[in-house]
Design a protein around this nucleic acid. Structure first.
Lengths: 349, 349
DNA sequence: CTGTTAGCGCGTTCAG
DNA sequence: CTGAACGCGCTAACAG
């Protein structure tokens, strides 16, 4: 556990060459005879040589490190983004420095100071919703910044965020595909950018099929309670519909409960699609709700990729939209793939 | 954004002193006259001097950085632990390097290599359940390691984990306090260490009150479906009980649904307590389930604290148990604190 | 109390 | 093709 670390000079002397030659070989630079190369590599291997990253960073001025900034109390969505980014960066021998700031992403001054002090090579700012734009720090740090799971207030910044229109599109297209043309939409807050994009995608898809939304968009919040109330109200009003697109899985769950409590069969009478694949995020997938997965891990990877390319290639500034995908569940199919036995079956709530 | 950084030598020359004097002042070391001290600080301030952390680390051999290792696909519980640790470390100007490894925490070899290369000053290994012990890497790295949200396979390591007995204790004590002596327990898997500890705490508390558990412990999995099935079965068997302690909130939710579906009033006929405060973890608290919060953020902070103290003070090896706390909800109180209006009220499922 | 001197371990010229 | 020499920015002994 505690042999003192072997240095490049150790390798060099043991291989009978100078430090600089060893350096060249181990970094693949410069032309060196195959023989000495082999010898150096062999010695390095044998000694289990690990270059002191700190010294290397210091010498090169690059830290091979990017800073990831997140809120102090982020939503569940932040974790997969973080890990996706970490995974992508790790492949390039980059490390991920994690910072959190209190609540909103306002008080960034202190974090910016730390990021600069540590000479990070880039920064990813991870938001936790699309309620409001992310505060831009691109002009406070001398390295590339990308914004994930949110949109920077500065349109010249690079932001990566779920494709809300595609969410609306996939959800409604699925409902149409299974023969449910009478769609209602129980959404989250009207002011949320995610809500707005999903509505656009939904309306475009309906229009493309020559259909219209049943009634107005029902705006509310993101809670299960809102989903239940909205469903009850629709029933009370005598609205006729055979499909429901909900702003997230919480709303969908609430709506499903209310509908079944009122004797409406799901999915036989009404099919329901949610958004987020929340059950899978909390690692307890139960296949209950058909949902649109916003692929947060992939989003994190893309954000990291943008950062890595930011220097070399030309990534266009602006908002990049992350594709999402449909995950089937009982709320539209009526049965889970790999249907369980009765004993295993989840209670049909 | 891009003036070239000011170095310590810049500050020194402008203040008319040598580099080392400036260094001493800005690090609070050595005795320096108040006058020169003031002058140096003033210049540093004016120039907005930020020491190059990389250079400092290199010179001192310490990276002021700790590595946090988590699973590639961690449970929701990992995020608060991560952030709690980050927060505690940040107060000591320590940074947090995030690493994830595939699935289980086995393939740690590569991560260990990176941790060593970057000269981290310590490591926190974050597990994602108590199903199985965490693989010990304490002998693979030359710095202190603590294990959080899991227990190291090596009893000489320091592990920080939720206090499962206290969970059982708080839950059952609350049920007894509200006058419910006939308690059943719907648990998670029998093999899970968390389950076992909770059972012990529960039984001890019952015994202390001169009571016995109603029936056997019902072992199952962590799902909502299991909670529902267990509740139904208890009813079918004619078991008489007025309180239910569930292994987590998912189980509790399933049980609650099944009971209400069978015409049993909750909490009037049966009071329910869960574990995890899951609703709050996913940032959509709805006050439905009375639950035991395992205080994951605090656990992360404690783990970080252990690491910081590991060198200086004497932290005893072994398992440290993190205190938990009770969070009241409708499933035992019958009404949420700050009861909502009818319109705001969540659907009583 | 302050300045001088020497590294920390590696990358990178530039001579040989 | 190889090696000697220097520098990255800062800290830490040791002199003055």
């Amino acid at each position: 556990m505690n042999e003192k670390p072997v240095r490049l000079s150790d390798v060099a002397t043991l291989a009978g060459v100078s430090v600089s030659t060893a350096s060249k070989v181990l970094n693949g630079r410069g032309r060196v005879s195959a023989e000495t190369r082999r010898r150096i590599e062999e010695v390095a291997e044998r000694l289990d040589f690990r270059p002191n990253a700190l010294a290397r960073f210091f010498a090169t001025g690059k830290s091979q490190t990017i800073g990831v900034v997140t809120s102090d109390a982020p939503s569940v969505f932040a974790l997969p983004v973080l890990l996706g980014a970490q995974s992508a960066l790790g492949k390039s021998e980059m490390a991920t420095l994690l910072y959190s700031v209190r609540y909103d992403l306002r008080g960034l001054g202190d974090v910016v100071r730390r990021l600069r002090a540590r000479q990070v090579d880039g920064v990813i700012v991870v938001g936790d919703s699309l309620e409001s734009p992310l505060h831009s720090i691109s002009h406070d740090v001398p390295v590339p910044v990308v914004y994930a799971l949110g949109v920077s207030e500065d349109p010249r910044d690079i932001s990566v965020t779920p494709d809300g229109r595609m969410v609306g599109n996939l959800a409604v297209q699925h409902l149409l595909d299974i023969g449910r043309p009478r769609v209602v939409h129980v959404a989250g807050p009207a002011t949320d950018l995610a809500t707005q994009d999903r509505v656009r995608g939904m309306l475009a898809t309906l229009q493309g099929a020559g259909l219209e939304l049943v009634g107005d968009v029902q705006y509310g919040d993101w809670s299960r309670g809102w989903g239940a109330r909205a469903a009850s109200r629709l029933l009370d009003q005598g609205t006729v519909f055979d499909a429901m697109f909900c702003g997230n899985d919480q709303i969908a769950t609430g709506a499903l409960l209310a509908l079944r409590a009122a004797g409406v069969r799901v999915p036989d009478d009404v099919a329901i699609v949610g958004v987020d694949n929340l059950a899978s995020l909390v690692r307890q997938p139960d296949g209950l709700i058909t949902t649109v997965d916003t692929n947060m891990a992939a989003l994190g990877e893309v954000a990291a990729g943008c950062l890595l390319d930011a220097g070399s290639s030309t990534i266009e500034p602006g908002v990049h939209y992350q594709r999402c995908s449909l995950v089937l569940g009982e709320s539209t199919t009526g049965a889970r793939p790999g249907a369980p036995t009765d004993e295993e079956r989840y209670l049909p709530i």
